[in-house]
C-alpha cells in the first residue's frame, strides 16, 4: 500500500479524548490521523475508525445512548458491516454497545465512583487485527478512566462470547491472574475489551492512547495501534 494508514477519529459533542487518540497515533510514522465530525456522513477514506473516550452528549442519559443516533454512526455501522476496522475506547466502547455493534452493556462501576488508575490487562487473543503485536497471555499496563465500565451480558450472550472467544482483554493482577481483586469495576468475567463476531470491531474500557510514550510512564498501548497499522498495510 502506498501512503499512510488513515485513522478517522470521530468527534461527538462531549468527546474529550479525540485529541489524545490523534496525538498518540501521530507518534507512529505510518499513521495519518484525522477527525470525523459527528454530523458527517462520509468517512473520508478511513482505514480504521476510532471512537474516542469522553462524555458524548454529556452522557446525561445512558452512556453512549444518544451518540449512537449521530449521523456518522450509520456510516460507521455500514463500514463495520463491510469488514472495516473500528476501535471504541471507553466512551467509544459504550457507544458500540448501545449501537449493538458489540454484545453486552456497560453499567456503573460497582464501587459507585469514577476511577482513574493504572490497570493490568491480560491479552487473551493475539490473532486479531488489534493485538497481533502482543504475545499470548502477555500482561500489559493500560490506565482505566471511567464511571460506567462494569460490562455485563445475559447468560446466553456470555456463553456465545466464551465459545467464540470474543474476549480480547481481561483485568488481571501484575502476574496475569484474573481475580476479583484485580477487577476495578465489577465487569463480568473481568472483561476489559471485547471483539465483534466478525472480528473487526473492538471495544475496550482502558485507554491505550495514554501509554504510547515512555515520558507518560508506559508504552504498552503501542502494540494495539501498531497491530492495526500492520493489519491495514498487509491488507493493501
Amino acid at each position: 500500500m502506498s501512503g499512510k494508514v488513515r485513522f478517522g477519529v470521530v468527534v461527538f459533542p462531549g468527546s474529550n479524548c479525540e485529541y489524545d487518540a490523534a496525538y498518540a497515533l501521530s507518534t507512529f510514522p505510518e499513521a495519518e490521523p484525522f477527525y470525523l465530525w459527528h454530523k458527517e456522513r462520509d468517512l473520508k477514506g478511513a482505514h480504521v475508525v476510532v471512537l474516542p473516550g469522553g462524555f458524548s452528549y454529556g452522557d446525561y442519559l445512558r452512556t453512549g445512548a444518544i451518540a449512537r443516533f449521530s449521523p456518522v454512526m450509520q456510516e460507521v455501522a455500514a463500514f463495520a458491516a463491510d469488514g472495516g476496522l473500528v476501535l471504541g475506547i471507553c466512551n467509544g466502547f459504550q457507544i458500540l454497545a448501545e449501537a449493538h455493534m458489540l454484545p453486552g452493556a456497560l453499567l456503573r462501576n460497582r464501587g459507585l465512583k469514577f476511577i482513574c488508575h493504572a490497570q493490568y490487562l491480560r491479552v487473551e487473543r493475539t490473532d486479531t487485527p488489534f493485538t497481533r503485536r502482543y504475545s499470548p497471555g502477555q500482561v500489559i499496563q493500560v490506565p482505566v478512566n471511567h464511571n460506567e465500565g462494569n460490562w455485563t451480558a445475559g447468560a446466553e450472550s456470555l456463553e456465545r462470547i466464551e465459545q467464540e472467544k470474543l474476549v480480547v482483554f481481561r483485568y488481571c493482577d501484575a502476574e496475569g491472574n484474573v481475580t476479583d481483586a484485580a477487577n476495578p469495576n465489577g465487569a463480568t468475567d473481568n472483561v476489559a475489551g471485547l471483539l465483534s463476531e466478525g472480528g473487526n470491531v473492538l471495544g475496550m474500557m482502558p485507554h491505550p492512547e495514554r501509554v504510547c510514550e515512555s515520558v507518560l510512564g508506559g508504552t504498552d498501548g503501542r502494540g494495539l495501534f501498531g497491530s492495526l497499522i500492520d493489519t491495514v498495510l498487509e491488507r493493501a
Binding site: Y23, A24, F114, L216
Partner: peptide, 16 residues
C-alpha cells in the same frame, strides 16, 4: 481523592 479525577487526559501529566 485523585483516583476519582481523570488526571491523565490530554497526555501531559508526567508526574502524577
Amino acid at each position: 481523592i485523585w483516583q476519582q479525577y481523570d488526571h491523565q487526559v490530554q497526555l501531559n501529566t508526567v508526574l502524577l
